[in-house]
Amino acid sequence: MFEDLRDLYQEVIFDHNRNPRNFRVMENADRQVEGFNPLCGDRLTLFLKMDGDVITDASFQGSGCAISTASVSLMTEIVKGKTEAEAQELFTKFHEMTTGKEEHINLEALGKLAVLAGVREYPARVKCATLAWHTLDAALKNEANAISTE
């Protein structure tokens, strides 16, 4: 019945929405930042454990739609073990993929995150996918306690 939506709601997204990975409060986190999308009420808290400039652990709490939950769940998986610079580079690529500014995006470089490429056809939902990454960006820059998509 929802054939048109298969690009947006891939099975991986349903899976991460049902069973979000790294969904826990992190004791003794080095970084803790809240992300908020006031338009839809999506709210998450991101926790990072750092060793120098390497992200050794990432987790989150919060509530949101399937797209935003899957996005943050996938993100916490993929950034573990990455340096800050590598994570920033992923954010840039992810942003390009979801906002569709680049004609030829190398989806392979994004690994599992490529399942979220479908949001670019749904401008109203792009912020759901990017909230996690804006929150990570703020956490890495260590510049804010809370960020908002608006």
């Binding site: 929802f2 947006l8 839809c40 939902r125």
Partner: peptide
């Protein structure tokens, strides 16, 4: 099921509802 997912899925069926606060 978050209201925004409901809104997008119903829209694909031609149904316009509001999702939000």
């Amino acid at each position: 099921i978050h209201p925004h997912d409901i809104g997008t899925m119903l829209d694909s069926l031609g149904i316009a509802i509001r999702a939000g606060h």
